[in-house]
């Protein structure tokens, strides 16, 4: 027979253990809820502020999206030029950034000798850690004067400057995600292909890359998200003109820049319209995330 006091002691320590367990579980839950809560708070706030002019003040949402005049002091709010600018800038950055990023990822995971990969890999990751405003300063100090002096543009602040800066900025995202995807392709695929007499490069493009397709697509979509949401770097090199760009040398104002540029001075309807710009931007990001979710669920099959 165990001593009764000993049993009591054991029960007590057990109870303490359960309480600790309970508390830590709840603590984790609270931490998890904080991020979800802040997400909903931000969405709620942006949508509440941004939808106000259309619901309460009777502005037309269609005119807002497709209007080409943004003159807050004259009560004209049309963001079509900015939507176009955002889309052009993102597509342009993709055209330059994706091939470079993808080839870098392939090089790092398949071709590069270890010592070289050891230098390039951290360099790429470090690129991701540079604050975006520094990219902007770099663009303003190097790319803009270069475009002005060497390509003879009237002004260096242009769509092409934005595209170049964004392409550099999306590189680390594309490279790291694509590299992980390519590395995840089973070794047997490569061995099988090589054993059948395919060249190493043939193996990479015909076997490895197709096998890592969904991961690579995810890399591209993530890069896209980075490009479309970027603000600080863009504001310095875009020129922020309110025109629908007809050439890559035109200066442009993407959606993000419009918000950051005018929020400091805006009040009343003008401010609410900037939040509405945020809603449009948010919709873009949501669509991207939806596409991303589709891609990654497909990858599971």
């Amino acid at each position: 027979m165990p001593n009764p006091s000993e049993v009591k002691q054991k029960n007590k320590s057990n109870r303490l253990k359960y309480i600790m367990e309970f508390i830590s579980e709840k603590l984790f839950l609270i931490c998890a809820l904080i991020s979800v809560l802040s997400l909903f708070l931000i969405i709620g706030f942006v949508f509440f502020k941004g939808s106000n002019p259309f619901i309460a003040d009777g502005y037309s949402f269609i005119d807002f999206i497709f209007g080409s005049d943004w003159i807050p002091s004259e009560d004209k709010y049309g963001i079509f030029p900015m939507i176009v600018a955002s889309i052009y800038a993102t597509i342009g950055a993709l055209v330059i950034g994706v091939p470079i990023g993808l080839l870098t990822a392939i090089f790092l995971s398949e071709i590069a000798p270890k010592p070289i990969a050891k230098i390039i890999s951290p360099a790429v990751q470090l690129l991701a850690g540079i604050p975006s405003v520094l990219y902007g300063v770099f663009g303003l100090a190097i790319i803009v004067p270069f475009l002005q002096n060497n390509l003879g543009l009237v002004k260096g602040q242009s769509l092409i400057a934005v595209i170049l800066v964004l392409a550099i900025m999306m590189l680390p995202t594309i490279v790291t995600v694509a590299e992980t995807a390519i590395r995840a392709v089973p070794k047997t695929y490569r061995e099988g292909s090589l054993a059948l007499g395919a060249s190493p490069i043939g193996t990479i493009f015909k076997v490895v890359v197709p096998a890592a397709k969904s991961g690579i697509m995810a890399a591209i979509v993530l890069g896209l998200g980075r490009a479309i949401g970027e603000t600080m770097a863009v504001i310095l090199v875009a020129g922020n003109s309110l025109i629908i760009p007809t050439s890559i040398t035109d200066s442009v104002r993407p959606l993000t820049t419009n918000i950051a540029l005018e929020m400091g001075y805006a009040y009343g309807t003008h401010q609410e319209m900037l939040f509405a710009t945020g809603i449009v931007l948010f919709s873009f990001i949501l669509i991207l995330n939806f596409v991303l979710a589709k891609i990654s669920s497909k990858g599971g099959k």
Binding site: A184, G225, R226, G229, I259, A260, M263, I285, N289, S296
Partner: peptide, 22 residues
């Protein structure tokens, strides 16, 4: 993979939205 992506997309959403108030 999924958790990384989820994490990244959440950060993405959050970072994309914070251009707002000064």
């Amino acid at each position: 993979w999924k958790s990384i992506l989820l994490l990244m997309s959440l950060t993405l959403i959050l970072t994309a939205c914070n251009g707002g108030e000064e």
